[in-house]
Write a protein that binds this DNA or RNA. Structure first.
Length: 884
RNA sequence: GCGAAAGUGGCGGAACUGGUAGACGCGCUGGACUUAGAAUCCAGUGGGGAAACCCGUGAGGGUUCGAGUCCCUCCUUUCGCACCA
């Protein structure tokens, strides 16, 4: 063992050992318990960022820990290789997305290897590889056969200058990111996957996922958004009926049928067919609908915009009173949810209330809140809008409590054929068409004679050409005759290939199944998937809580129903890691634009008044003062990223891993701190020095447990206590930071232990071995070397997790905390397992404690909690005493 | 706007089941070593107070023998919102 720790050499040697021994390549072993540890696959953006380091370190720690527990551990890795950034890169430097992507993969793979992750690289998958995406296409065709995939129109962001569809991300404050032109909504044909067919199962099965964070299950449940209510038909008024060619009634869905008599207007979405029909003979309305088309399709934009509306001039009739109700077009009604129409009840809905005020519409109160806040004289809307209560002013339905009112109204509606109870979901079908180049082609052919024709299975995959370079205006595939010109598989005449590609969420919906059998070229998955799945532990960012995880669950259920595997849910346990944050510093230029400076280039000092100021020195030599904008997610746009590669070069991978695991619990945000990294590095060096100091004195003798003195027993108790705590922290609580803290404490204890006798050295040997084993999943390289130095021939990577010697944990006495009226007043020591009466007696015998008690007679109660080693004396304080 | 979380010393965090608030680390202060600095080591470190003690977990209320933890109201920050991945 070298005297001085050289991380580069240590890490090179450990990684070479794992590579040579193929330590992480795994095979299916019937009868051996498997553990599938999966981290969300990265997008190959070019370089690893700290979020990746954190994600994959968590995964690696769990994988290595479970391996020590004897499980057959699979930890694979792949690349989410299709997507927008490759096209953007292509536009700025003229390199085709395929080449850019593959170069990035090469670099990032090397970076991952330098971090020492125990990955089975023989199973690597890249989603842009035809051997992968052909199965997207294959399953899409199965979905088409089953009616799960279908075509309808969808709304997209349209850049009128570039004549191209924009992703939400490419819309900045309502304008196209490249052209600056105001974005419009546009309807285009789109392929959808019928995820709503699985709504109820997706909702119900959340209960079968106890290994998922509660908040993720809640978010998914809210996203699916089950609500019970009524569908109500408002017949068109005679004038309207004549004007509209469509017969019948306007349908709405409401969860508040009890407020039906409070309806003072009806509002429909701008895209509603009735709105469009009405606009045909109303130019002002047509102009308003056009105005509603402005802006992006993002829900956050739509929901926060100013609530605007316009009369259509048409009317519908109240289903009970028959009174005509004005029909409005409103920009806050979403076509995609429910019926694209809402009944306006300004007395009991905040949005409707705002709308009514703005447009001087009547406000009628029809529910009396139980809190009594209802006041007919005062403005009734001062009361809670959402309050449930007893109906008033509702004809024969007055005087009913919410549920009874809804039941009665629904029954009466049903009798008249004007409505019924219905369950409504918020979840919409999944639109997967993208007018983009760098994605998986949708395997369809459009033939003038035969219509939409699926590409026959034997012609799969529909290969994506890899030599195109997008220019920002439309999809290059649609301009590439070599791609879109084809013959109809049905009639043989010339036809046009579909040029839309699939949403990249399709790629990430099943990659974890492909890892089980990446070389299978005759089927999407084979029986090896049955061995490895479900994933035992999935780790990834909280930002994927809804979309990716919901789509993957849906995709799994479709694969099950197609007969590919018997699996209802793909991920048994889920860990959602927090983001990595760093300070954000900027300077606002004269034109109002912010310039961001990387925190590594920023210095802080106190100015004359003692306030902290932040400065940086420009290349010109000029020093400028910066604004401290606090903490933000590490990002390119705010220039506050930390490059893992530099960190590894300077401190080593083990330090990077240790810091990310120690700085905060995995589910919380992690704040970057250079000092924290140095602290982690310092600890690793102290560990090295401790082991070096120990082994240079030669091998320790065998540990004789029965011959130990008090101090030796004390160190041994600390070591086994740490071991037990670390197993629980890592294995059950996923609380890596406290496991590390416990190891630090143990090393501190070893440092204070100066017994150099044979037995003392034997106890120290055991303690150092425990620290090494406990930390080996977290800092595997140094552990590899220390374990060798401690005299072991087998590599630490193949060692099992050690067993706790429970006899080492036995204590001679236990301390009880004594409280008086809940305040700490003293401590007493008693024998382990002492009777309650004895503990109580000891507590009452404590002089200091009794100073806070007004004599024995003042004691009202004594509560002894043996499990918590606490005694609480409830008593009145001494007269004029100190317990003021 | 809707949905979900989080607020504890100077800082990151610990306190797992309602039971000793501040483990561990950073920073800071003092000391040792050193020609000097860096590194390292030792000691101290929530606030107030000479002390006894008192106060203290975003704010305000409540439940309890006992609340950082449970309940209610509010404030602040972060994330997601269906075409970023």
């Amino acid at each position: 063992m070298e005297e001085h720790y050289d991380p580069a050499a240590v890490e090179r040697a450990a990684q070479a050992y794992w590579e040579e021994h193929r330590s992480f390549e795994v095979k299916e072993e019937k009868g051996r318990e498997k553990y599938y540890c999966l981290s969300m696959l990265p997008y190959p953006s070019g370089r690893l960022h700290m979020g990746h380091v954190r994600n994959y370190t968590i995964g690696d720690v769990l994988a290595r820990f479970m391996r020590m527990q004897g499980r057959n551990v699979l930890q694979p890795m792949g690349w989410d290789a299709f997507g927008l950034p490759a096209e953007n890169a292509a536009m700025s430097n003229g390199v085709p997305p395929a080449r850019w992507t593959r170069q990035n993969i090469g670099h990032m793979r090397a970076q991952l290897k330098s971090l020492g992750f125990g990955i089975d690289w023989s199973r690597e998958v890249a989603t842009c590889d035809p051997s992968y995406y052909r199965w997207n296409q294959w399953l899409f065709l199965r979905m088409l056969e089953r009616g799960i995939a279908y075509r309808k129109t969808g709304v997209v962001n349209w850049d009128p200058v570039d004549q191209t569809v924009l992703a939400n991300e490419q819309v900045i404050e309502g304008r196209g990111w490249r052209t600056g032109a105001p974005v419009e909504k546009r309807e285009i044909p789109t392929y959808y996957l019928n995820i709503t067919r699985y709504t109820e199962e997706l909702l119900r099965d959340l209960e079968r996922l106890p290994g998922w964070p509660e908040r993720v299950r809640l978010m998914q449940a809210n996203w699916i958004g089950r609500s019970e209510g009524c569908e109500i038909s408002f017949p068109y008024a005679p004038d309207t009926h004549a004007a509209m060619s469509a017969a019948g009634a306007l349908k709405v869905f409401t969860t508040r049928a009890d407020t039906l008599f409070g309806v003072t207007f009806m509002a429909i979405a701008a895209e509603h067919p009735v709105a469009l029909a009405a606009a045909a003979f109303n130019p002002a309305l047509a102009a308003f609908i056009d105005e509603c088309r402005r802006g992006s399709v993002m829900e956050a934009d739509v929901a926060t915009q100013e609530k605007k509306g316009m009369r259509t001039g048409l009317h519908v009739l109240h289903p009970f009173t028959g009174k005509p109700i004005e029909l409005w077009v409103a920009n806050y009604v979403l076509m995609g949810y429910g019926e694209g129409a809402v009944m306006g009840v300004p007395g009991h809905d905040e949005r409707d209330f705002e709308f009514a005020l703005r447009n001087s519409l009547p406000i009628v109160t029809v529910v009396r809140s139980p809190s009594g806040a209802y006041d007919e004289v005062r403005a009734p809307w001062i009361a809670d809008y959402g309050d449930y209560g007893v109906t008033v002013n509702s004809q024969e339905f007055s005087g009913l409590e919410f549920r009874a009112a809804v039941d009665a109204i629904a029954a009466a509606l049903e009798e008249r054929g004007l409505g019924k109870k219905r369950v409504q979901y918020r979840l919409r079908d999944w639109g997967i068409s993208r007018q983009r180049y760098w994605g998986c082609p949708i395997p369809l052919i459009h033939c003038e004679a035969c219509g939409e024709v699926p590409v026959p299975d034997e012609q799969l995959p529909v290969l994506l050409p890899e030599d195109l370079v997008p220019d920002g205006s439309g999809n290059p595939l649609a301009k590439s005759a070599a791609f879109y010109e084809c013959t109809c598989p049905r009639c043989g005449r010339s036809a046009r290939r579909e040029t839309d590609t699939m949403d990249t969420f399709v790629d990430s919906s099943w990659y974890y199944m492909r890892y089980a059998c990446p070389d299978q070229d005759r089927a999407m998955v084979d029986e090896r998937a049955a061995y490895w799945l479900p994933v035992d532990q999935y780790i990834g960012g909280i930002e994927h809580a809804v979309l990716h995880l919901l789509y993957a669950r849906f995709w799994t259920k479709v694969m099950r129903d197609v007969g590919l595997l018997r699996l209802d849910e793909p991920f048994t346990n889920l860990l959602t890691q927090g983001m990595v944050l760093n300070h954000v510093y900027s300077q606002t230029a004269v034109d109002g634009r912010r310039r961001y400076f990387n925190p590594t280039d920023v210095r802080s000092r106190r100015d004359a008044s003692g306030t902290e100021v932040f400065e940086t020195t420009l290349p010109s030599g000029e020093t400028i003062r910066l604004d401290n904008l606090g903490l933000g997610k590490m990002s390119k746009s705010e220039n506050n990223g930390v490059d893992p590669e530099g960190l590894i070069k300077r401190f080593g991978a083990d330090t990077a891993r240790l810091f990310t695991m120690f700085a905060s619990p995995p589910e919380q945000t992690l704040e970057w701190s250079d000092e924290g990294v140095q602290g982690a590095s310092r600890f690793i060096r102290r560990l090295w020095v401790a082991v070096y100091g120990h082994v240079k004195r030669g091998p320790a003798v065998r540990l004789e447990v029965d011959s130990l003195n008090d101090a030796q027993r004390g160190l041994r108790r600390a070591a086994h206590h740490t071991l037990a705590k670390a197993a629980d922290d890592i294995g059950r609580r996923r609380s890596f930071n406290t496991a590390i803290a416990a190891s630090m404490e143990l090393l501190n204890t070893v440092g204070r232990f100066d017994d150099l006798s044979d037995l003392g050295r034997a106890v120290r040997q055991e303690a150092l071995e425990i620290i090494t084993l406990v930390l080996s999943p977290i800092v595997p390289h140094i552990a590899h070397e220390l374990w060798r130095a401690l005299g072991h021939r087998r590599a630490v990577v193949d060692e099992p997790w050690p067993a706790v010697d429970s006899s080492a944990l036995v204590q001679d006495s236990v301390e009880f905390v004594v409280q008086v009226n809940g305040k700490l007043r003293g401590r007493v020591r008693v024998a382990p397992g002492a009777e309650e009466a004895l503990i109580r007696e000891a507590a009452l015998a404590d002089e200091h404690v009794m100073k806070f008690v007004g004599g024995k007679a003042a004691i009202k109660r004594v509560i002894v909690v043996p499990g918590r080693q606490i005694v609480n004396i409830v008593a009145s304080p001494p007269a004029g005493g100190q317990d003021g």
